[in-house]
Amino acid sequence: MSVIAVYNIKGGVGKTATSVNLAYFSAQHHGKTLLLDMDPQGSASFYFRIRPPKKFGAKKLLKGGRHIEENIKGTDYPGLDMLPADFSYRNIDLALDECRKSHKRLSKVLAPLQEEYDRIILDCPPNLTLLSENIFYAADCILAPVIPTTLSLLSLEQLFAFLDEIGQDPDKVVLFFSMVEKRKKMHAEMMRSLRERNRVLQTVIPYSADIERMGVYRQPVAAALPASAAAAAYESLWHEIRDLLAI
């Protein structure tokens, strides 16, 4: 069992596309997978055509148990379920604050789900909050998509500083390059320098119109366009992560 959090402080780096496609490949490779949409915008839920459940929200999520189990929905793909997001997640920090041991709450909520699912993938909102702390505590791996730009570098430094502050192992973080444009010289240069770090994956997810159009066809790119370069890139990313985490 493993919990993978797809996370970056910056928005618009391809987190949701990564979560959705990795979850798809995880289920394809014989692992019962749960995708948790933690982002109040609910983009991952939208991609799977799953509407936010009624009578469900941040407080129910944190209660866990049957409150979660009753709201898990099957996707169109065998072996892949998801817990759709609710708009009330935007206030989740307030709800967390009321919990005891507030930084471990999510981990506790996920524990019973780990019996049913081989893998849990978290699609995380872009910020550094009490929820993020919960996510880092619960995750075995923090998978961070990085657009090779200077601003991304800055947000990475912030991430590692935060992990240090809350006493989490920086080795949980695994980086890969996302939305890479071959013709941009800066992308190539940034990638070269960043590769000197530890735990940077080989696979590069290119900037792709096929991925952007996921909102139109509302399926993982590999389901809608199995022969596309984007689908191949995500599959290769999945294999690399699987090997790295030995799952």
Partner: peptide, 9 residues
Amino acid sequence: VRLFGVRGY
């Protein structure tokens, strides 16, 4: 005829 349900529906 076989019916396979989808969780949550």
